[in-house]
Design a protein around this nucleic acid. Sequence first.
DNA 1: TTAATTGCGGATATAATTTATCCGTGATAG
DNA 2: CTATCACGGATAAATTATATCCGCAATTAA
Lengths: 165, 165
Amino acid sequence: MKISNTVEWAIHCCTLLAGLPEDVNLSAKDLAEYHGVPHPYLAKALQMLSNDGILKTISGPKGGYRLASKPDSVSLLDIVLSIEGNDSCFGCEEIRQQGPTALKRSLSYKRPCLIASAMWKAENVWRAELEKVKLTHLVDQVKVEADPRQMKKTQEWLNDKYNSK
Amino acid sequence: MKISNTVEWAIHCCTLLAGLPEDVNLSAKDLAEYHGVPHPYLAKALQMLSNDGILKTISGPKGGYRLASKPDSVSLLDIVLSIEGNDSCFGCEEIRQQGPTALKRSLSYKRPCLIASAMWKAENVWRAELEKVKLTHLVDQVKVEADPRQMKKTQEWLNDKYNSK
DNA sequence: TTAATTGCGGATATAATTTATCCGTGATAG
DNA sequence: CTATCACGGATAAATTATATCCGCAATTAA
Ligand code: SF4
Ligand code: SF4
């Protein structure tokens, strides 16, 4: 029941990209440098995001990643599922069909039991909650809450990247 | 984002115990045999449940486990957290404080960002959903839905265990 | 009191998973 | 054409999760 930390990286990358002008893109190396995380590993996460159509890749020199669609159409859930996979976190192994008291392969176990359905329902409300939060919201909060000094630093860093291309 | 399968075992054990008369208890070996799962490993899960006050242990011959409290005061969430631990599934590593644009250990990062709070809120609704389901509900469903033949088999198995003590 | 049974906790071995790295291929701007 | 860059597959290392074992203390039947 642990969420990989690459999920956090992925969310931060998407948020950063969502706040950028449309014609700007950042390479995996840039994104890794910006967040202070290992490049080759972050690249894997970015690949998943691009496979799932969340990011668009521009190859060749000056290439990199940018958001594939509008920031308000990408939710936290999209990113989380892209990295973690969309399997249910509760895997029922049907143990009621094992042991000495089990009936032999009967059809008596038709519908999912309360245990499994409760677990699945809980996961659904969890997903619904994450679905509500779009990248737009995250970008907006950064604009409102971020320290002006950091905004300035970030802008300079971006300009630096952009000019060197 | 995977839940250990011992969680499922634990829930099944608790449900079985919850359906038993008050003065009956089952040993770890019995529970393992009943569910067709390895005894030494299930024992670990039972220990956690007993450490967290969900199960009560009777030691010595004829000893074993029984529910520590009323079935309607134990929820799915209690069991899940007992086995999985109650850490949040989203671990924020404060990566906004890393990289070249970060401000040096300033207090500018006072409140948790939207990302973290959205993840935590989602986990809370998940927990609330599991909290709703008590062992009573599970026992009731078994009584209503279970195949009479299996009920009979189970009863015989239980009598067998009980008489041999 | 003694012998047998049972849960407890620590130590340990094995299997999976996560994390991290590398390189070859293809695409693209200059 | 050539240098740059991302993708994908393969692989290695580190970390967790899973599964097992054994000696100890507690309890009870005889
Ligand atoms: S469906 Fe329910 S009863 Fe059957 S194995 Fe899964 S959790 Fe257990
Ligand atoms: S608090 Fe938010 S911004 Fe900071 S590291 Fe955690 S997820 Fe990222």
